[in-house]
Design a protein around this nucleic acid. Structure first.
Lengths: 147, 147
DNA sequence: ATAAATAAGATATTTAATATCTTATTTATC
DNA sequence: GATAAATAAGATATTAAATATCTTATTTAT
């Protein structure tokens, strides 16, 4: 019951892009190095982010990735769900047919409530908020400390 | 990001035991059949529930399982965490060392909040509540409908 | 035309979850 | 006490998902 590494990597990648600025093109190499994501794995992740229209991929030399939308318009939930699909904390939540009485099942109701609560919490956080503050990318934000 | 089947089975088993009543001995066979848990898998699960002091195992002929505590004193969270360990929705939550800046990381803070929120939601539900109402065990509660 | 970049599909590799089997232990009953 | 019926506990498959990597193709600046 935990975010996958792919999900974590997607968040880091997006936070880094947001930090660099909306529309700014950043190379795969740079992102991979700064965010400590295996370069090949990053390639897979950005493909999904691009299909979901969260980023733009530019090919060719001087190519790279950039945000499609302003960071304020992207939520943490969106990023995570691109990678792992819609969050549901128990199978019966997204496949009620797996349970014979789901509709009236008291256990089902708890998981349904917990799932939507979690989705709301993640939806309330924007990429802008995440990139404006210190976050878990090594070296970054350097903002050369004033001591 | 979903409950494992072992977790789901543990909940079903506990709900069934609670339904039969506190201290009532129920055989493995009966539980396996009524809750649709593979018998061998159930054996593994009750071992953990027993170590965690949620149920009592009685060996020998006429053996079986029963609740150790009144259902009102057991929470859904307890049952689930016996099977999957303490819930943390991202690696950085229970292993802050995996992240270089965790303490001040804005992403980390969100996952920490989401994790405790989820734990609170599950902690607020007692086994008694779950077994008093209709739940996801086929056939059960039969409570011969009055039509 | 060339070379530098990413795209996309295929394939390993690793890990975790699920399921099952085997042998051992406990205990009610005769 | 012997027997048989139940669970215990450790070991081993099996399955599925996640992670990681490789290969070949495509795009585009120079």
């Amino acid at each position: 019951m935990r975010l996958t590494r792919a999900g974590e990597y997607a968040v880091r990648c997006m936070v880094y892009l947001a930090y660099k600025g909306h529309g700014v093109l950043v190379s795969k190499q740079e992102i991979a190095e700064r965010t400590e994501i295996p370069s090949y794995f990053l390639a897979k992740i950005v493909q999904q982010l691009s299909k979901a229209r969260l980023i733009v991929i530019t090919q060719g030399p001087k190519g790279g990735y950039s945000l499609l939308k302003p960071a304020a318009e992207v939520s943490l939930l969106q990023i995570v769900e691109v990678m792992i699909g819609e969050i549901s904390l128990n199978e019966c939540v997204d496949r009620p047919s797996s349970c014979s009485v789901s509709k009236n099942c008291s256990v089902h109701k708890v998981w349904e409530k917990a799932s939507s609560q979690l989705r709301e919490t993640l939806a309330a956080v924007s990429l802008a908020q995440l990139s404006e503050n210190e976050s878990c990318i090594p070296i970054f934000p350097v903002r050369v400390s004033n001591a």
